[in-house]
Design a protein around this nucleic acid. Structure first.
Lengths: 255, 255
DNA sequence: CGCAATATTGACCACTCTCAATGAGGGTGG
DNA sequence: CCACCCTCATTGAGAGTGGTCAATATTGCG
């Protein structure tokens, strides 16, 4: 990965570090000068390390975070002490939009591996997006996407069985890595089996058994954190329930 | 209900029909004059009837809808022909924010009972919220709330058992009706058992059995569509897993 | 090197689904 | 107005998926 990191603020590209991004920004409706103004309010911090908290449930909301490198999980704690993992956040993804309304974070963001983020202070962002209509536009789109993504998760948790859930999860990671220019066939899981299970509404043991079975079936190779997807088509078939239909139709399938 | 209907556009109050709403709007940051401008772009339609579609998956996105009276379910269709109910929308709630990014609706909105809505054309809304910063602010809050609400559903589907799910669901309806000035103890379910089960990730039969059991246990009375919550505290205990702990702590619990 | 956390594997069990039959409304048309 | 039908709801019996518990590996880390 080049040392000039671009965060894909979903469609809203933000420069991180000190790179020129004219070629990335123009296509999506922000003028070069606007990008620079946005860039000026973004603050970078030194990297976080595994098990650090980016923020915790109840913390005052300062702004939204864009993941530059690394990965982060968000989760909420339940009254009985258990957690519910809400999501895993990879480079180019945004965290914290859920806290705008309350002004307080409703979930905890915990670092899974050494991670760099940008903080975009919310008050400044809101002011700026009054001045830059196309920024407001991108913000609405960004939040809208976040809302529309929910339905995939509801389907996963509401309708899919264990096989389908894990397959869907792996394909989602695969696709997101691909979008970021990483390999879509081979990657490292920065989260534990426990966290995967928690996220997918399954027990750890089930995740473990599924990895073993998928491997026995030649669908993937997994060793500890490292995963290699050997048969993505099979995963797609599994993820969308089709026991062994032809898969010549839609692609879809993203968490 | 008075004939002057106010839709609580979450914190963004919108006038429907022809009412004066100064007393409702000022408290939440929109000037009277701004309200009027917003009001001018809102379009009303004649009521929809049961099984009508407000919009369907794939329809071009025109704007967001505020439910004035009645109720609506949203759902997505899966490849295998099954559906996943995404939510039930009561008076004062907003539908369609998920479609902003794609410009196309990703789910279908189907009318459950005679329902009146406002359509807020999105392009006009976006333009207006450039001109009225406090409107933009409310929009961000509104979308943020939608995003933060997701976690309740993830907990429900990821962690809760059948009892907890139904209890949580009933409490959510109860609370939402209460907010709208209706009874929180007694109301009509505009959705079928099937739709409830679908939404909660449970089979119809399970819903039916639970209603019967809850009734046998004196927690509620249910007849057909009509539900009376006899022991809301018991429901709260059930919804948050505590088998029979004291419930003197938090309230929370909303879908 | 040894401990603690994480992962794997097995055995058993329970919650909920599925299948099937019955019952109850609600709407329509004769 | 009633008979019919169709959808929706209820109830029971049996089965299966995935959870729980427990034991054992494995890994990472101090």
């Amino acid at each position: 990965m080049s040392k000039t990191t671009i965060v894909n603020f979903n469609d809203l590209k933000i420069a991180c570090e000190n790179c020129s991004l004219s070629r990335l920004c123009l296509p999506m409706g922000l003028e070069q000068s606007d990008i620079e103004r946005l860039d000026q309010i973004v603050s970078r911090s030194k990297p976080y390390h595994r098990n650090d908290y980016l923020f915790r449930e109840g913390d005052t909301f300062k702004g939204i975070y864009a993941v530059k490198t690394g990965s982060i999980k968000t989760y909420v704690s339940r009254e009985d002490g258990s957690d519910q993992v809400l999501g895993f956040h990879l480079p180019g993804e945004i965290i914290g939009l859920d806290a705008i309304e309350a002004g307080v974070h409703g979930c905890t963001a915990k670092i899974l591996e050494t991670t760099a983020v940008c903080l975009i202070p919310y008050e400044k962002l809101e002011k700026l997006s009054v001045e830059i209509p196309s920024l407001q536009h991108q913000m609405f789109r960004l939040m809208s996407r976040e809302i529309s993504n929910e339905s995939n998760m509801l389907i996963l948790l509401g309708k899919k069985n264990a096989d389908e859930r894990l397959a869907t999860f792996l394909l989602s990671l695969s696709q997101r890595y691909k979008q970021r220019g990483f390999s879509s066939q081979e990657f490292n899981l920065s989260m534990s089996r426990n966290e995967i299970g928690n996220y997918l509404g399954l027990a750890v043991e089930t995740i473990s058994r599924l990895f073993t079975r998928f491997q026995d079936e030649g669908i993937l190779k997994v060793e500890r954190k490292h995963v290699e997807l050997l048969d993505i088509e099979a995963l797609k078939r599994i993820s969308s329930h089709c026991s062994q239909n032809d898969s010549s139709s839609k692609s879809s399938a993203s968490i």
